[in-house]
Amino acid sequence: MEKQIYILVVEDELEVMDALVNDLQSFETYFPVETANSSEEAKKVVEQIYYGGNEIGLILCDHVLPGQNGVDFLIELHADVLKHDSKKVLVTGQAGLEDTIHAINSADLDHYIAKPWTKEQLDSVVVKQLTDYVIEEKLNPMRFMAILDAVRLAEYMREHKLSDY
């Protein structure tokens, strides 16, 4: 069983979560989706995923959450060595400029999606971020070529001296 790469969605409004997860279903065959309604819950989910020997490739996180807000959650996660490289995307209509700058500086925020999002926009961000993740983490690119940016993954393979056996 190869290591699974998860997409984690953190969003407290259930209808919004439902819509987000629905838009992500085309990725689910390759990247199982997990969800959480608060930062607290998200932390438990993250631990479970890593406990199972799997990892998180991408986190889509709302900013306004009960308890700890999204930016602070991402910063905390970023400080953890294991989750340092997971791609972090803020999906929100409400984070102010300051919060966003804070997130970019301290959590190495990888992208910002403003609500309401479109399917195309979400797809392109998810593809870009997960492709980055696969390349940075040196995962087997062939596993994900069909769903991610195949040209970039092929280019990555070209540069990394794949050999014939």
Binding site: L14, T35, A36, N37, E41, V45
Partner: peptide
Amino acid sequence: SEPLGSSEIR
């Protein structure tokens, strides 16, 4: 239907 919380979905 009403949307379910994520822990319930799990």
